[in-house]
């Protein structure tokens, strides 16, 4: 049983004109086995929160803390955070030329586990998981994200989540750019991890359609760098119907 605690988090993003304030005091706690949906308008800072938790160098935490089972995540390097059990499925996964998916996955698995996976099981695990995600086996020999379509990149993110088995996964708009079939396939992948492990999920999205497959326990409305309202799954439906207008301060 693990806990991810975000307390009064303030974050600036580095811009050419100097630092820009994005997160203005975020409080959020996710426990193992829970699924939290984080919904909010464009530019409200959702990805910033995701990147700040993962430790992207462009985002500077100016105050507040992020604790994983009481340990200060912010003091860890990016790769230490991942080895501590954090995972971020990115909104825009990065192309890494020259590195094949299979080599990348094996290296990541080895890094996370601290030892190389037994080869025979590993190969069949990878193959099976790719099959479940309807990924062609040839992806294994392609370079990471290079020339992948938007949907393929998202499947590849969930493939990693399934294989790396994190304690907490932040899924940043994993649903965007997916057609109905792909959305189902990817959601099933997330649900498999939820079924097989005790992963806690923070699912960032604009739309409720992914929430029909992945049921959230809690919904948080994110506006202007803060959590503006919290509730159960019914809040998501209401947001879909009404939009975010009532949260936005009138000019």
């Amino acid at each position: 049983m693990s806990t991810l605690e975000i307390r009064d988090l303030h974050v600036d993003v580095e811009t050419p004109d100097g630092p820009k304030k994005i997160l203005r005091g975020v409080d959020l706690t996710v426990k193992s086995g829970e699924t939290h949906a984080l919904m909010g308008p464009n530019g409200s800072g959702k990805s910033t929160l995701a990147y700040a938790i993962a430790g992207h160098p462009k985002y500077a935490v100016t105050s507040g803390e992020v604790l994983l089972d009481g340990e200060n995540l912010l003091e860890m390097s990016v790769d230490e955070r991942a080895r501590a059990g954090m995972f971020l499925a990115m909104q825009y996964p990065v192309e890494v030329p020259g590195v094949t998916v299979s080599n990348f996955l094996r290296t990541a698995k080895t890094a996370i586990d601290g030892k190389a996976p037994a080869l025979r099981h590993w190969v069949s695990d990878v193959r099976g998981t790719m099959e479940n995600l309807r990924m062609d086996p040839t992806f294994a020999e392609r370079n990471v994200n290079e020339g992948f379509s938007g949907g393929e990149k998202k499947r590849h993110e969930i493939l990693q989540m399934e294989l790396l088995q994190p304690k907490f996964a932040v899924l940043d708009e994993t649903d965007s750019g997916l057609d109905v079939d792909a959305l189902r396939v990817v959601s099933e992948g997330v649900n498999r991890v939820k079924g097989n492990t005790d992963v806690g999920v923070l699912l960032i999205t604009h739309y409720t359609r992914i929430l029909r497959y992945i049921t959230p326990d809690y919904v948080h409305v994110f506006v202007n760098g803060q959590v503006a309202e919290e509730g159960g799954p019914e809040l998501a439906e209401r947001l879909e119907a009404e939009g975010y207008d009532r949260f936005l301060t009138p000019a």
Partner: peptide, 24 residues
Amino acid sequence: DDQLFYLRSRGIPEAAARRLVVRG
């Protein structure tokens, strides 16, 4: 930096990440 961040966000230390890229 983004490539490095991506690899490191999967637990791969910086030294290993560079090696992976250059060897590849």
